[in-house]
């Protein structure tokens, strides 16, 4: 197979890579660009551990091809903190102990961030539905949901 040359933007930086035509974007991020924050839980769109945004839209990177990234704006978990400063969601996940093994955490954070950008004041039900495509084997979800609700409160308070 001849490789495809792709120019894209990842977390605000211009990035170029070569990939096989059938290689997923998740594989490209992890194995070619060294961005191993996005995890492969299932490789079939069921677990959300590979969540990223493409042009602002939350997607599973295991369900996109590297080639499809041409000209797109990609955002991954690696772009969430600003240097040493954690994103409020990251701080709240720590505060609420919303993780144990942590393999699902990058996906939950990326997905929750996309939710709060679209809906800064979600109800608990809205949060649970939005995150239904993110699976966690450890926490039992409640702490994750509470961390997201608490972040929304705090971000609202910070704005007003």
């Amino acid at each position: 197979m001849s490789q495809i040359h792709v120019s894209t933007t990842v977390n605000g930086d211009a990035v170029e890579f070569l990939c096989e035509p059938d290689e997923t974007l998740l594989t490209v991020l992890r194995d070619r660009l060294g961005l191993t924050g996005s995890k492969e839980g299932c490789g079939s769109g069921d677990c959300g551990a590979c969540s990223i945004t493409i042009d602002g839209r939350l997607v599973c990177s295991c369900l996109a091809l590297g080639a499809e990234a041409q000209g797109c704006e990609i955002a991954t978990i690696e772009g969430m903190a600003e240097g040493e400063n954690l994103h409020p969601l990251q701080s709240k996940f720590l505060e609420h102990a919303a993780l144990q093994c942590g393999i699902c955490t990058p996906g939950f954070l990326v997905a929750a961030k996309a939710l709060l950008e679209k809906n800064p004041d979600p109800s608990e039900t809205e949060i649970r539905y939005w995150l239904a495509g993110n699976l966690c084997r450890c926490t039992g979800y409640d702490k994750i949901i509470r961390a997201v609700m608490d972040t929304a409160e705090e971000m609202k308070a910070a704005k007003s």
Binding site: G45, G48, L58, Y129, G133
Partner: peptide, 9 residues
Amino acid sequence: IGSTQVQGR
């Protein structure tokens, strides 16, 4: 159809 992530595609 699917999750929020699947809906994005």
